[in-house]
């Protein structure tokens, strides 16, 4: 028996918005410690890694490990039926071929359940090596979304360049060039407004706008985003999900000229 009850059901709705453009389907690996999802997009350029710890749920039960293959467009349709203040429970029997979503309104006057067929997915799992990143940049997530959106007008790629002075985002194309420089903030009233750069060595990498823009669909999950870069390895874009876990996106760089 698997059962996970999330009082902040809106978080699950936001998680779905953050992954459904990148992925058509994905396996939810449910275990005693929580729920994990790891899946690449169809072109093998990016990877989504989602971690929801059991402690983040107000009720969590997982008697035996369970892999639930879900069609994300179907799951998204179902989660759209939940109100933002609904409590959401996911449950499944062992070896079941369906999962049930239960939505409870805060005062319990409306309770809905939706049963969805599971699919068998034969997905590649990737071993992601532990990496000490040369540059770790924290910035407001809305600022990052704005930068990606603005620079996408200029070309298909964004160059991210991190030095001890700060971080520079650049794009170039037919209409011209664009550069956005963010300096590390000295003092801020709110921690979530800060730009922080932790740099061991300068790094410059180029990434496809299309994917960066899809990652920014996670913006409503967290006021801050963390970018980790090292020379010639995939970028990591991480959004914390309150006390419950995180969503990380890995993006292979564009290389050569």
């Amino acid at each position: 028996m698997f059962e996970a009850r999330l009082v902040q059901g809106a978080l699950l709705k936001k998680v779905m918005e953050a992954i459904k453009e990148l992925l058509n389907e994905a396996s939810f690996d449910c275990a005693h410690s929580g729920i994990l999802l790891q899946a690449m997009d169809n072109s093998h350029v990016s990877l989504v890694s989602l971690n929801l710890r059991r402690e983040g749920f107000d009720k969590y039960r997982c008697d035996r490990n369970l892999v639930m293959g879900m069609n994300l467009s179907s799951m998204s349709k179902i989660l759209k039926c939940a109100s933002n203040d609904d409590i959401i429970t996911m449950k499944a029997q062992d070896n079941a071929d369906t999962v049930t979503f239960v939505f409870e309104s805060p005062k319990q006057e409306k309770i809905s359940d939706y049963e969805m067929k599971l699919t068998n997915l034969d997905q590649d799992h990737l071993g992601i090596p532990e990496t000490e990143y040369s540059c770790v940049i924290k910035l407001p997530s809305a600022e990052f979304a704005r930068i990606c959106r603005d620079l996408s007008q200029f070309g298909e790629s964004i160059v991210i360049s991190c030095t001890k002075e700060g971080v520079k985002f650049s794009a170039a194309g037919d209409i011209g060039t664009a550069n956005i420089k963010l300096a590390q903030t000295a003092t801020v009233d709110k921690e979530e407004d800060a730009v922080m750069v932790d740099m061991q060595e300068p790094v410059t990498l180029t990434f496809a706008c299309k994917y960066l823009n899809m990652f920014t669909k996670a913006t409503p999950l967290s006021p801050q985003v963390c970018l980790s870069m090292s020379p010639d390895v995939p970028l990591v874009v991480e959004y914390k999900i309150e006390d419950i876990g995180h969503i990380r996106y890995y993006l292979a760089p564009r290389i050569g000229d």
Binding site: H44, S46, L126, A208, P234, A252, P253
Partner: peptide, 14 residues
Amino acid sequence: MAKQSSLLNFFNRS
């Protein structure tokens, strides 16, 4: 023009 690399060049299938 820079070419898009694949994640499979960096991470191993497990």
